[in-house]
């Protein structure tokens, strides 16, 4: 990429209202540092108190999702991979903020993820809160969902803070020969 192309890329990013963008490796240390930096960017962007907390929370939930669940690129040797590859972008559009995360998932998990997200998408805010409370007190979660590494509250937490139902999509990755796909999720705050 020559400098001129890079300038165009940067100008487009600015024009799209991007206040935060990270594409690459996610590790615990990178998430902690990015969270710290993001706090300052949110402060500078003039977000209200509740919006600040929601943006920060949505970033942390999405970043930790990437760290825990993202699939590796085709052909990657897990022994030589440090962290998980993924992307998170945050931007401002009018009075709203959008947060988008992207990571690879195994195609075998697409049905399970779609089912979880469709369920959350169909809920009203009151339903989301009710489900959150029920799940918080669900002591059987680890046994019911052996793929989950958390409390089963991640999507509900993200959805609760989103003004609109979470948008999601999957894009196939031909190089993986059907093993992985890219998973996009968008929240609006």
């Amino acid at each position: 990429m020559n400098l001129n192309t890079f300038e165009i890329f940067q100008a487009q990013a600015q024009a799209s209202g991007i206040i935060f963008y990270h594409s690459g490796e996610f590790t615990g240390a990178i998430i902690t540092a990015a969270a710290e930096s993001l706090k300052h960017r949110i402060e500078e962007s003039g977000a209200s108190g509740p919006a600040k907390r929601k943006l920060f929370s949505t970033f942390v939930e999405m970043a930790q999702n990437i760290l825990h669940y993202a699939a590796l690129p085709p052909g990657a040797d897990p022994a030589f991979v440090h962290g998980k590859p993924g992307t998170i972008g945050i931007g401002k559009c009018g009075d709203d903020y959008w947060v988008v995360c992207v990571n690879r998932v195994e195609t075998a998990h697409i049905a399970r993820l779609s089912e979880k997200l469709d369920a959350v998408r169909s809920m009203s805010l009151e339903d989301i809160r009710k489900s959150y409370r029920a799940q918080l007190h669900n002591t059987e979660h680890a046994a019911q969902d052996t793929l989950s590494k958390g409390a089963g509250l991640g999507w509900l937490t993200i959805a609760r803070d989103s003004k609109q139902p979470l948008e999601y999509s999957f894009t196939s990755e031909p190089e993986s020969l059907g093993k992985t796909a890219f998973f996009f999720v968008k929240a609006v705050i």
Binding site: R53, Q64, L136, G150, L153
Partner: peptide
Amino acid sequence: QYVNSASTKGLQ
């Protein structure tokens, strides 16, 4: 001031 979803179980 802030708790991630995974930590809510610990608090509970």
